[in-house]
């Protein structure tokens, strides 16, 4: 069963999703939304991997996606835990209020 959809369609969709995610990271101030956008970017990449895996008929891309999912799960867990912790003390999730890394 050879798929009818060309590879470039998937790549284009993936690029659009990635860019939307990146834009979200840049324009939103809510830390939760930013984390969501990061997840979205990762998913865009996952889509690319799977598309290539399909067209190259190789399982490696899917393994990558699997690993990315593991990392994403951990990342979200830790990131949200940090967020909760930050919110406890700053009573805010607005990242513009956190600039103590200023040099």
């Amino acid at each position: 069963m050879i798929d009818q959809i060309p590879l470039s369609y998937y790549l284009l969709l993936s690029a659009i999703l990635f860019t939307i995610g990146a834009g979200g990271v840049l324009i939103r101030r809510n830390a939760i939304i930013i984390l969501m956008c990061v997840e979205m970017m990762m998913n865009a990449v996952n889509l690319t991997f799977i598309a290539f895996s399909r067209y190259l008929q190789s399982a490696d891309g899917q393994i990558f996606v699997f690993m990315i999912m593991v990392v994403a799960a951990v990342e979200v867990a830790v990131g949200l835990a940090l967020l909760v912790e930050l919110n406890r003390h700053r009573e805010a999730v607005n990242i513009d209020e956190f600039n103590s890394l200023k040099g």
């Binding site: 840049l26 101030r29 956190f98 200023k102 040099g103």
Partner: peptide, 13 residues
């Protein structure tokens, strides 16, 4: 270079 470090996550991103 230190002036480049605004501390805002958005700038780093």
């Amino acid at each position: 270079l230190g002036d480049l470090q605004s501390g805002y996550i958005r700038h780093y991103a």
